[in-house]
Design a protein around this nucleic acid. Structure first.
Lengths: 320, 320
DNA sequence: GTGAAAGCGCTAACAG
DNA sequence: CTGTTAGCGCTTTCAC
């Protein structure tokens, strides 16, 4: 069995409570005593048993994050942010992939709730009501989703989309289409708002490579000179399909994405897209969670996004 | 406060021990009693307190996974496999990104060790000795790394590389170079073995997009007709740089990657690469961990890899 | 088959 | 400032 607090107490010639205090309430112990305890702790390699501690404090020192799809590079980036900030506080992080199923999401949050101090929920597909119920169960912070009364951090999609539109118009594009994401995705609606009705809307497609391909074919029929994809994964599908159809990007069609995932800079032509501060969002989410745990109120935070202009957009083709 | 075992006991008119048994040792309780308890459990929505349970059993019901870089899509895929299998067993998973630092790796494993039943360590950069020490501390399963006496699951790089070489030679390539990964990466050495000395070795580069670009320039000077990249991320960098230099792939140079990350199929030309059963590896790792926890011996498991031929390779150019 | 009781390792009053 | 004591919620002997 591992070394316990009693071992430390014995060797440091103090009571267990002193050891406990030396470790978690330094101010309450005489400096000399504290030092002695710390030395013994180091010498013995003592690590407090978290189960015992949490049994009594009611806190686990853990937190959870639920994402819809680990296969979308966007989410691992958020994970990284969460872990970075959490790690600084000595907090460990559980993760779960809901595979884009709202039912699974709810179940995962419930399961996690039992063993974490709070959970971060990314791009949730659940209804507002479900989310409120969950927030009632455990401290909850949303990423890219707003539900009244629930903490959230938002990467400003609307503004990002606004920048896309401005960019396209400055290039002389008059007719551009929006290749929509899933109907159920909150971000999809948010992004449409940023469009301000200036783009033709083209249905709703799966938010992945395949969906982009399908969307591209339909978009081609509209005669638009620029395609705005819901996200980068779709945009990559668009690029691929257009290449296959021998449509030149950006000479014939300009294409934009959203998210600025790793691949956006790696493909050719490199994708003009909206950069999302994903890691930062993860970090801020942890901060908001901390606030909640300290008894603070729910907070909303909005992080700026910015357009990254690369090679997939150019001036609109002259009238042909 | 949440509902406890005593609440259940009271309402079911039995003792707490009976409730406990009904839940975790069904055989020791009369069926009728058990049913009554289960009904109450369901009615009250009772969830056993994991901290209390683990305090006494010594098991946490959690496991951890440490990866070198969440930004490489290869690793989220492994995470997914781990979580899938672990979830089936009601086990939750902690994750950590070591940012490719062996020191951080060791620290993370040590920290995790205190609150998990075992850890999965991916593509570790630590020395054999360090790993053995850690394996001594907590049940440990390695992915893509072999250390004597420690459990591991291997995706067969050597064979994969062998297939790459065979493919290239069947296309008539005589002179091809290997753009090496990090010196410290075990997989890098393993992959070189698969080369069997038939490729020219070209230093060691960062295993990412940037590294690929650098490597491509050097490789061009060798006059080789095919470039074998350490991994897909590098290969994508190669593709990008060659495109910038107006070198046609595959007409002038054939390029291969390794891993078959999502994007390998999305880029153009689509990448010929070695497919790795990442999710499966994650699942098998969990199985091996379970074996270890049941007191079983360390085991090695090897998963097959296979070449996926796409558009980035073609017959060697005729003598120019 | 079931109950009573003894802790798991730790923190948090409460004294001193 | 430090020690003593009483549990946190659960599993697990040990009786019956």
């Amino acid at each position: 069995m591992a070394v316990t607090i009693r071992d430390v107490a014995r060797q440091a010639q103090v009571s267990v409570s002193t050891v406990s205090r030396a470790l978690s309430a330094p101010g309450l112990v005489k400096e000399a005593t504290r030092q002695r305890v710390l030395d013994v702790v180091a010498g013995l390699g003592y690590q407090p048993n978290r189960a015992a501690r949490s049994l009594i404090t009611g806190r686990t020192g853990n937190l959870g994050i639920v994402v819809p799809d680990l296969g979308n590079p966007f989410f691992p980036a958020v994970l990284r942010g969460v872990q970075t900030r959490a790690g600084e506080a000595g907090t460990s992080v559980f993760f779960c992939d809901s595979r884009e199923d709202p039912r699974t999401e709810a179940e995962l949050v419930r399961t996690m709730a039992a063993q974490v101090d709070g959970v971060v929920l990314c791009a949730s597909l659940m209804s507002d009501e479900q989310i409120v119920d969950l927030a009632d169960l455990t401290p909850l912070v949303l990423i890219n989703r707003i539900v009244p009364g629930v903490s959230s951090v938002l990467m400003d999609s609307a503004s990002g989309m606004d920048q896309v539109v401005a960019h396209l118009e400055s290039l002389g594009h008059k007719h551009y289409v929006y290749l929509g994401g899933p109907e159920a995705a909150w971000s999809n609606h948010r992004r449409m708002q940023g469009l301000r009705g200036r783009a033709q809307l083209l249905g709703s497609f799966e938010a992945n490579f395949g969906g982009g391909g399908t969307a591209a074919e339909q978009a081609l029929k509209t005669g638009a000179t620029a395609f705005i994809a819901y996200n980068d994964l779709m945009a990559l599908g668009v690029l691929s399909r257009l290449a296959a159809l021998d449509v030149k990007v950006p000479q014939q069609i300009s294409v934009t994405g959203f998210d600025d995932i790793l691949y956006a800079a790696m493909c050719s032509p490199a994708l003009t897209t909206v950069h999302m501060p994903t890691e930062e969002a993860g970090q801020v989410a942890v901060d908001l969670l901390a606030g909640l745990l300290d008894g603070g109120p729910a907070e909303q935070r909005e992080l700026p996004t910015n357009l990254v202009i690369r090679a997939s957009t150019t001036a609109a083709a002259k009238h042909e």
